[in-house]
Design a protein around this nucleic acid. Structure first.
Lengths: 205, 205
DNA sequence: CGGTCTCTTGACGGAGTTCAAAGCTAGTGG
DNA sequence: CCACTAGCTTTGAACTCCGTCAAGAGACCG
């Protein structure tokens, strides 16, 4: 009884998210929730490592993930953060069952729901509307990603930093600076310089 | 009769494309084909202009489209080319019925199939598998777009140019250089410099 | 043939990188 | 509880890639 309550609470974030895009009946919702498994991650734990095949979709309930790859010159490049209410996965590896070039790692204590590949075909058969839902999720991810290309090519590093800071002030506090620099596409040194410049600028005025 | 033949031929590219991802029965295929309209575009004709609401998905049969926006400083930024076998649209504008910031324009004589918004709900109801198909299309577009971010942030402009040239040698010949420069994220002048450098390098060896 | 659009070339400047060293912070073990 | 280590951040100097500006050369089109 108490475990069921826990379960319902745990899945609430997802239910809300799904219902914003499609209408499931109680039965379908039950099928969805019973197919997903919840998972707790400690900081630095991995959901996916380079060269592995990605066999699940992950939905972030709390905490934060990073999706990154190891570049040829030995540095890490963060392509995506996974925060509350986002699905994350290496879809290419998942779809084509090929080894991934990416890593998915928890930055902090993180709670995710797991949709495993072995369950997902049946789930989509039983709840066909989910095709619709995930189509829209992919669409959103795609347009967000186009937007990012737009910003990278069009704005200076400083503008990107200022803008990101304004959009996610609390998030910026939570993650190490070198990760933010990597995500925004410049060096930690440069970020450090920006920050000191800003501090000076604001403290003067 | 002859028009039907033309029609079948016209849609063959799409049929092949769809069948690579889902299996439609003849009836479903018929529904799909009869819902789509074909459209011929002359060079510089528009499918979508800034501030309009995007009310269709477009599938490129031949020719080439560009998906671009006008930046604040008065230049054009190309985010995407639409070539044979690609779907293109402003999905955000389409989905949320909001004015687009983008333009979709034919670069050369181009033939597209049009899936209009007014037809698409019914089409997806009659052929639910299409949800699956478009989910996969979005997934592909998304991963391609992530890949592009990876390259922009990790490679020099020169490396990007060389790589793109190697991947699409024929396509590079077909489009004006300033468009290629815009897509790859640098200035036409810089591209010109790269080209002269390369020519010298190869003619010496 | 004249005008507009595209490509080329060169000089200069600036945003951001690289390298190196030193300061901070937090965690760990004795 | 302190000392040590390892990882993160800061700072500064030198350098480089690429943008900007400007002017000229082709190329295409009416």
């Amino acid at each position: 009884m108490s475990s069921k309550l826990t379960c319902n609470k745990m899945h609430k974030t997802l239910s809300e998210h799904v219902s914003r895009h499609i209408q499931l009946n109680p039965n379908e919702e039950q099928v969805l929730h019973s197919t997903l498994k919840s998972l707790q991650l400690k900081p630095k734990e991995y959901l996916l490592k380079e060269y592995e095949i990605c066999n699940a979709y992950y939905f972030v309930l709390s905490g934060c993930l990073r999706f990154y790859r190891n570049t040829e010159n030995g540095t890490e490049q963060i392509l995506q953060f996974g925060i509350k209410g986002w699905w994350i996965s290496d879809y290419q590896s998942f779809e084509n069952q090929m080894p991934s070039e990416y890593n998915i790692q928890a930055i902090e204590q993180t709670e995710v729901l797991v949709l495993e590949r072995k369950d997902y075909k049946q789930l989509f058969n039983e709840v066909p509307l989910l095709n619709n839902y995930f189509r829209i999720m992919m669409q959103k991810a795609y347009t967000a990603s186009l937007k990012k290309i737009e910003l990278i090519l069009c704005q200076s590093a400083e503008e990107r930093y200022v803008q990101f800071n304004k959009a996610f002030p609390d998030f910026v506090q939570r993650i190490p600076q070198y990760m933010l620099a990597s995500f925004l596409g410049f060096t930690p040194q440069f970020l450090s310089m920006l920050r000191s410049k800003k501090r000076y600028a604001t403290s003067v005025k």
